[in-house]
Amino acid sequence: MINDYSLAGRIARITGLGLCLVFTLFPLYWILVTSFKDPGTIFAYPLRYWPTQFSLANYQGLFEQSNFAIYLGNSLIVSTVAAALATVVSLLAAYVLARFEFVSKGAVMGAFLVTQMIPGFIALGSLYILMTRMYLVDSRWGLVLVYVAVSIPLCTVMLRGFFENVPASLEEAAMVDGCSRLSALFRVLVPVMTPGIAASYIFNFVNCWNELFLSVTLLNSDSNKTVPAALNGFISSFNIDWGSMSAAAVLSIVPTMILFAFASRYIVQGLTAGAVKE
């Protein structure tokens, strides 16, 4: 199909891909190496490209000097719950948008897509007041609800793409057999779409896990803080402690990376589902 069987072509291709891989992985490697250096040697010259001795001092310091375990726990709870709720809500909406034609459908889709164009800061002040009125400021559950709302638009679009890959005859058959629409959806369609749903869930999870500004705005107490808010706190306080910072960065990246390693294929499918139609 492509005429790059020539030796030169192959070498170029392998070198190119190799360089891309190095370019991609190096920053992650570098923060990892930094985190394992002894705090005293982080600023040492010449730079060391691999830690001569592994030191866990940065991690130890991180957990001693801050409530990092609590932040991790908060992020885990908030992201898990918000991603799940958002996936369920989006699943229902996506089903309707994938299967039916109705007058206001374009408006709903448009309203969802416009949320992607809005700089979040425009709404933060009003959101804070709204949340205060509902007694949801400085509450992890309050943050969950906001995260659900923020996740819904993209998640719905992704899931809609997955629905379109599943023939309607499946649920029609189930409904002929006496299932309600809802039970047909959950008993017949959901099992078929498991990879897609899992991917959407992970996508939501990672977005919530990484979210910074809403978390900083809506949570106050240290005991409610999420990981990104804590990272933000590390830079702006007294010193930029690159040792603790690198350890914290590694701990915050690893979970999402493991999830992505498993789900990247399906996330790609979900993202491309709507757009790629050649």
């Binding site: 891989l21 991609t24 992985l25 990672v206 990484n210 910074l212 910072m245 294929r265």
Partner: peptide
């Protein structure tokens, strides 16, 4: 593909921090 997809798992803010460290003038 899974490996090169990794940057997508990192938040923009944290990417800023990673590169701020790498582009640090002194170290």
């Amino acid at each position: 593909q899974a490996l090169v997809f990794f940057p997508w798992a990192v938040s923009g803010f944290l990417i800023g921090i990673l590169f701020r460290w790498m582009f640090n003038g002194e170290f």
